[in-house]
Design a protein around this nucleic acid. Structure first.
Length: 548
DNA sequence: GAAAAGGAGAATA
DNA sequence: TATTCTCCTTTTC
């Protein structure tokens, strides 16, 4: 293998991730505010850096200092068709390139939240669900969330990514062709080919691909789906300015030199997405000694502590506000259209059916069977991905993912981004979306609910709420997770957090685990929940049929 | 010390 | 009225 340049093109943009992503391992893994914290506004149009309409974030790693001791993986992403890219790039494309097609988010004009749709029915060789799966398994245990049935990250058996997680046939020179969706009225995306190059210089690290979605011409909104990072629509580019760096001899990134692609460095520092999606950290050889790959509880502080010159909040607020605003508008538009609350748990059965039908149409899915969706919103949000797929074999995962987006958008704890009502925008501009302040924020609705009096979702039962959390492993997997989904056995990993979430939902600030567990114990005699046969701390089991 | 278990009364919808 | 919250004591891990 001829390695041409030690390059990392790292088009990573992460919003909302999730929990957390997620989190998955999604506290607000890929925390929206976290991202905003690191956004270098100097790179925005009008900033000091040149911009162009390209779409890639990419950066350059410093020359490896010691290849023998510092294994590195170089992953290169290209957003252009290979031939065009090759013409544009001075990087030699070797046979180890893998080309994938990913949806271009800007091709979702009718998407409910104006961002992206994860699959095209025209694609070949991939099931709709497979197309969510744009990551690579590390091959190590615990890479995925513990709930296989629920995991958004578990590749289906047919997934190209599941053939051989570490094997040689993995995507071997595979070019997955997807014809752009020709129907101009379709909400479905055209697909843009990305080339991914991996070079594994040493074997001590398993290479991991995380395929990020970008493109678009506007900074509009972002959302999470299925283990991929969220997207951000940019109307500026970093490619050009970074290429200039590449041309410089001995180009080096000076970590904290102002206006020196701080965004890229910070993005690479940001490990929140790893936590959210439970992705193994990759040593890019950057920032030696500076990066904490495991984000502790105070990840934000740690993140900032790695930067000698933290970006002032006021510099980030416009970006944060822009994204919040756009996302809110997108969902508000849908809410207004359908006359429903932005909080899915508040929907009645008619709202649920309305949303399911509307979303199905948006994604070109088959007409849903009304009887399958005859339930209130509290029931809908408690459904797992599996439940969705059972009800809608074609596209159930999409519906579930879309609902996750709504839940995350509404949830105050998901990605550090409050669902701010119009009147609370000023609060957002303070940039303070800390956990403590979340309780001050209320939902944005067609008919706004007063945060102080509203008990959003207060009708929900505790067992339903717990199932709701369990149904979002990428969001809440860090605090509650299935141990045995089929038996309804779950474990509360973070009793404090679960209690806090419950208290928020019920507008009971004094809620704690002692009280929550008392409520759970009330379920014993009602036959809703029980302790497992071999009683374990913080482990409970749903009784049949509540485990369904 | 935290979690579990359960009694008892209050608060809420 | 059903459900959950709240406070409490005792036991278990």
């Amino acid at each position: 293998m001829v390695k041409t340049k030690p390059i990392i093109e790292y088009p990573f943009v992460s919003f909302q991730m999730p929990q957390t992503v997620p989190s998955a391992g999604f506290t607000p893994p890929c925390d929206y505010s976290n991202f905003a914290e690191i956004f270098d506004l100097s790179l925005l149009p009008g900033g000091d850096q040149p911009v162009s309409p390209s779409t890639l974030f990419y950066t350059q790693s410093p020359p490896p200092t010691d290849k023998q001791t510092q294994p590195k993986i170089y992953t290169t992403f290209y957003s252009n068709p290979p031939e065009k890219q090759q013409a544009e790039s001075d990087i030699e494309l070797g046979p180890d390139f893998q080309t994938l097609l990913v949806p271009s988010p800007n091709n979702y004009p009718n998407s409910p939240v104006g961002a992206l749709s994860p699959y095209s029915p025209q694609s070949q060789g991939l099931s709709p669900n497979d197309q969510f799966t744009t990551y690579r398994q590390s091959g190590e245990a615990n890479f995925y969330p513990s709930s296989p049935e629920q995991s958004l990250y578990t590749p289906s058996p047919n997934s190209i990514y599941s053939r051989s997680p570490c094997g040689e046939d993995y995507l071997q020179n595979q070019y997955i062709k997807t014809e752009p969706y020709s129907n101009s009225t379709s909400p479905l995306p055209n697909f843009s080919p990305f080339r991914i190059k991996e070079e594994k210089l040493l074997t001590s690290y398993e290479p991991i691909i995380v395929l990020f979605h970008l493109s678009g011409t506007q900074f509009e909104s972002s959302q999470r789906y299925n283990g991929c990072a969220g997207i951000i629509r940019q109307h500026y580019t970093l490619r050009q300015l970074l290429e200039e760096d590449l041309k410089k001899p001995d180009a080096q990134i000076v970590p904290d030199k102002p206006k020196d692609h701080q965004l890229l460095r910070e993005v690479l520092r940001d490990t929140s997405f790893q936590k959210k999606y439970n992705i193994k950290p990759i040593d890019f050889g950057l920032f030696s000694g500076e990066i904490k790959m495991e984000e502790p509880e105070g990840g934000q502080e740690d993140l900032m502590s790695t930067c000698n010159e933290p970006i002032p909040r006021e510099n980030i607020e416009p970006v944060l506000n822009l994204a919040i605003e756009q996302m809110r508008k997108d969902v508000d538009t849908t809410c207004a259209t359908l006359g429903i609350s932005p909080d899915p748990s508040q929907w009645d059965a008619a709202n649920v059916l309305s949303w399911i039908r509307w979303t199905s149409r948006q994604f070109g899915l088959p007409e849903p069977v009304s009887e399958d969706w005859d339930m209130p919103g509290s029931g809908l949000v408690a459904l797992s991905e599996e439940d969705f797929t059972r009800r809608a074999p074609q596209g159930g995962m999409i519906l579930h993912a879309q609902l996750e987006i709504w839940k995350a958008a509404y949830s105050e704890d998901d990605f550090g981004m409050n669902w701010l009502p119009e009147t609370a925008s000023s609060n957002a501009s303070s940039g303070d979306v800390s956990d403590e302040d979340e309780e001050e924020s209320g939902p944005s609705q067609v008919e706004p609910v007063k945060p102080s009096t509203s008990r959003s979702g207060s009708h929900i039962h505790l067992w339903q709420f717990l199932k709701e959390l369990l149904a979002s492993p990428q969001t809440h997997g860090s605090c509650i997770r299935w141990l045995d989904r089929s038996k309804g056995i779950f474990k509360i990993e973070d009793s404090v957090k679960v209690a806090r979430l419950w208290g928020k939902r019920k507008n009971r600030p004094a809620m704690n685990y002692d009280k929550l567990s008392r409520s759970i114990r009330q379920y014993y005699k009602k036959g809703i929940m029980k302790k497992t046969e071999r009683s374990q701390r913080l482990v409970y089991q749903f009784c049949h049929p509540y485990n369904m």
